[in-house]
Amino acid sequence: MRRAPLGIAVFASGNGSNFQAIADAVKEGRLDARIELLVCDRPKAKVVERAEAAGIPVFAFNPKEYASREAYEREILQQLQLRNVDLVVLAGYMRIITKVLVDAYWGRMINIHPSLLPSFPGLDAVGQALRHGVKVTGVTVHLVDGGLDSGPILAQRAIDVQPGDTEASITERIHQIEHRLYPEVIQGICDGSIHLEQAADHKPKDGITP
């Protein structure tokens, strides 16, 4: 029996190129999922325009209008539950995630990060890699466990750092990898070739900055 398409919510804060890559993969039939919702903490971000153009529902909010992170996450959680979201996909969402969402979606929330974790977690990963003089960097998709890019790794893809590379040139190549890798990993979750239950078999932590 064919599985029903996986219902996903994508969280993003900015341009939304990874969101677009996921939406394109769904539209082209390469990804057996439905994007049920875009969650964005910047109502005027480009990613909101992308979602609206694709006919995807948007929950855009201003964090300053809430008393706490937990307060707006409780409202986000209501939106996710209302749409029966199976998987939360963080794609450039630049907010700390609290236990409200981590616990509710434990083992069902993933993130993409522009380094070969555990090296260079947190912000400015490409800049960190350049400053350390590494010869290889890349992209990691991992489960969110509430720590700083510390969850179990689901997939990685490496690139060589070339002489004369800049942060901009590496970032461009990393984006190209992200746009292929993230839909592939989500499809692996959809078809069962990636088992989140096994990866999630450890204790959640307190909060994450994707």
Rank of each mutant, 00 (worst) to 15 (best):
A4C: 10
A23F: 05
H195M: 08
G147K: 07
G164T: 10
P57T: 06
L31V: 11
P210S: 08
A129W: 00
P152N: 08
S17E: 13
T98H: 11
M109Y: 05
H113E: 00
R83A: 09
T209K: 08
F61M: 11
V26M: 07
A4R: 11
P118Y: 08
N111F: 02
A4V: 11
I208A: 10
D165A: 05
G7Q: 06
L123T: 14
L116Q: 05
I159L: 09
I96L: 10
A51W: 00
L101V: 10
Q20E: 15
D32N: 10
R34Y: 06
K203F: 13
R3G: 14
V136R: 15
L87N: 00
Y72S: 09
G192K: 00
Q187Y: 11
G127T: 11
V139L: 01
A9W: 02
V39H: 10
V139Q: 03
G207E: 03
A53F: 05
P183T: 07
A33L: 12
I96Y: 02
A199R: 07
F19E: 04
V10Q: 13
R173L: 08
T209G: 09
P57N: 06
L87Y: 00
G29W: 01
K46D: 13
L116N: 04
G127P: 09
K203S: 13
I194G: 03
Q81E: 02
I159N: 04
P152T: 08
I189R: 01
A9M: 14
G14C: 14
G188W: 02
G16H: 07
I22P: 02
G55A: 14
K205L: 15
E65C: 12
I22K: 00
R157L: 01
P43Q: 14
G55E: 12
F120Y: 08
L77A: 07
T137C: 10
T140Y: 03
V144H: 02
N62G: 13
D160F: 10
P152W: 04
V58G: 09
P114T: 06
E197V: 09
I186L: 11
H142S: 09
G164R: 13
V85R: 06
D32K: 07
P114G: 07
V161E: 03
A158W: 11
V39R: 08
A9K: 05
V48K: 05
D24S: 15
I97Y: 04
R173A: 01
N111Y: 05
I56E: 00
T209L: 11
D32R: 06
G7A: 07
I177M: 00
V85T: 01
A33W: 02
G192V: 08
V10M: 14
N15W: 11
I159G: 03
R50P: 03
D145E: 15
I76Q: 03
V144A: 04
T140V: 12
D160Y: 15
R3E: 12
G147A: 07
V141S: 00
Y93P: 04
G92P: 03
N62W: 10
L123K: 12
V89Y: 06
V136D: 14
D201F: 09
D191E: 14
F120T: 01
P57V: 04
R131C: 08
R69N: 15
K46L: 12
G164N: 12
P114W: 04
S169H: 13
P63L: 07
V10A: 12
D145K: 07
F11E: 05
A125D: 07
V161W: 02
I56A: 10
E167I: 06
L181M: 03
K64V: 08
I186G: 04
A155T: 05
C40P: 13
A25S: 06
A4H: 13
L77D: 06
A45Q: 13
K203E: 12
